[in-house]
Design a binder for these strands. Structure first.
Lengths: 211, 211, 211, 211
DNA sequence: GATGAATGAGGATTCATTCAT
DNA sequence: AATGAATGAATCCTCATTCAT
């Protein structure tokens, strides 16, 4: 019954198990979005209509679950960045990317995992690699935009990654009342990234590798 | 400038109690800064070298402690804003204020309390009033700057209050490695507030009263 | 006579869980009897040889545990009253019921829950209904006895419910030394309920609905 | 200044201290009556308009405070019993005494201390002696009544002491709604003590010394 | 693989009691 | 003698995680 490569790292899951995994990720994302990272495993399991034990069958710890979500989001952003890179206008592409990032952030603040704040987590599910992939993709996007004058010359990919979450964060306190307010602050920040009227920046950008 | 006990308790505390109160506020601020709002009372007490019960003698609940810190910070910002309003250059005054705000935020993220995200807290120690005072002071600062062309015409005091915390937030993940990085992002955001090269904003500003 | 799970939970519990539930109820009853309602959950858990958390798995709060015990007792009394009502002699039936009630009370004083003193509890487990059922059953018993001249005419079901706990209470201080002393005081009280030598009572009986 | 017998057990208190002691006893009695024996020392101190430390200056522990109240009540009852003994009708005297006892009990249930349930308390303030005095006085009252046929012959002083608290206890759950209901149950119990229609009692009375 | 019962460490809070002022 | 600040043991409860079914 058990396939020969019984202890291989990536055994294909049984159909129902795979389905449960997706249900769980969705439920967890929703619950985390609503209640923050303190959402309880019990609530997530209930929302996924699954036993509590099943959660731990799929994700050895709450952190693993959290990072699995983060990885999914990072990968999604990486993909977006890459496909936008194929598109035409560099400035528009970057703004579109930032919009996607803020939209995501609007739902669940994972910024710590997006930008290297994972010192205390043992990178349970490859966040570091996923982040690296995203950072590289964003850097490509930014480099192209900078070279074509769509953003100011002293801005790097690392800056953009870090600033990506800021608009949603600024609008956060009024999210209930004005769910689209983040768009306003994204434009403010983006205006700050433009070459026109740029003033010299007081601190060097962090190296890409530190993200 | 500062009165001895701006928002202190009714009766003047005994000397030693007053000292403990300050020790506690400092310890709590530090602990919250390091561990977030989930820092435990036990740790705070230990850090203040005080019994656990003493914390509750001074602050009837953890929320009261948290809000006491928030109120102190808000009042400090209000004062800064007011004294900057008396100074000369409107643009510089606003930038200086944002610098102070970001510096504070750098240490402990209380943005939720700074901007009306206190629906679930019963305002134990007057955060709402403190916030209102600050918002009014900031609005005065912004209005003056806007009238004199130091910031773009479509920016309001509410916008500034909300954006105030963003630079520290963006730089947060790299705080350990680059403690001054927030200055960089403060300048980016401030460039976004300038009139030069401003693009139209996609969402109306929130009314002051909603903060 | 007794159905397997008279007021049990919706789903049939797993065998081991059901056993733990009974262990817990027994341990709690014993502990409450010895230490009063201030007995600690930790002690109850220890006595039931169960983890503290298990207590809360079965009963969401201490009040729920307490009321679960109360409901069980009330239901037991209701049943007794109903089956005694089917029996022959009205006077004997009432005395037998009071004996059962006092016997129960002897072990754990839940009189407050037996007689409407639950204003501060949000009726976590249906004490109110259980009490109503018992009160109704007792009233039937008393009405029959009164109509047949077995008790004085100015006594109601409410009176009997209230007086039911008194004998065990009176004998309480000497429970250790004379565990059966309550029988003596039950007879005194019961003599007071008899028609012979009854003097007029100075206060109207409380309406049934107030119990 | 300090009187010679400085460490004598019964130094006359300074006038203000004596006053505070009375304030405290009154406040404690009121608070215990309202909130039960779990009333907090802090509340008592506040009610007496006295510092918390003062409570402990007068009463070395909460138990001492509680027993001081009990002793005062017992002494009061002893006095009543003794003066009623001097009066005319034995039956009326006993009923009057029971009325006083129930009235007292109505306010604060100290029955445990009234009837020897102090095994766990180290008799901090002479409850045992005070109880003995009362028991003796009640026994005299009962003996006289029994000899004159005002109560049934098989009833002793010990029985009456134990039964004394029962009416208030029975009426307790409805105290708020019907504050005088205890009078009804006192008459029921008293009818049970009368010689008319008395049935034999199933258990010997406890010896006086066991109270 | 799925389930949910069992577990116990950890957290906020209360309160009698002690002690410095 | 009076005060009230300090203390820490005790309590209820939550929740991630383990494990038997």
């Amino acid at each position: 019954m058990t396939p020969p490569e019984s202890s291989g790292p990536r055994r294909p899951l049984r159909a129902d198990a795979a389905r449960n995994r997706e249900l769980l990720l969705a439920a967890a994302a929703a619950e985390f979005a609503e209640r923050g990272v303190d959402a309880s495993i019990a609530d997530i399991a209930r929302r996924a209509k699954v036993g509590k034990g099943t959660v731990f069958n799929h994700f050895p710890s709450k952190d693993h679950l959290l990072t699995a979500i983060a990885v999914a989001r990072l990968d999604q952003l990486t993909e977006s960045a890459e496909s936008l890179l194929a598109g035409s206008d560099p400035g528009t592409a970057l703004l579109d990317f930032l919009t996607l990032g803020a939209e995501q952030q609007q739902q669940l603040d994972l910024s710590a995992m997006f930008a290297g704040g994972t010192a205390d987590i043992q990178d349970p599910a490859g966040v570091d690699q996923a982040r690296e992939r995203m950072v590289r993709a964003v850097d490509a996007l930014v480099t192209r935009a900078r070279e074509q004058g769509a953003v100011r010359p002293d801005i790097t990919g690392a800056d953009v990654v870090l600033l990506m979450c800021a608009p949603a964060y600024a609008a956060g306190p009024l999210r209930q009342a004005y769910p689209e307010l983040w768009r306003r602050y994204l434009m403010v920040v983006f205006d700050g990234l433009r070459p026109e009227g740029a003033h010299p920046l007081p601190h060097p950008p962090p190296p890409l590798g530190h993200l």
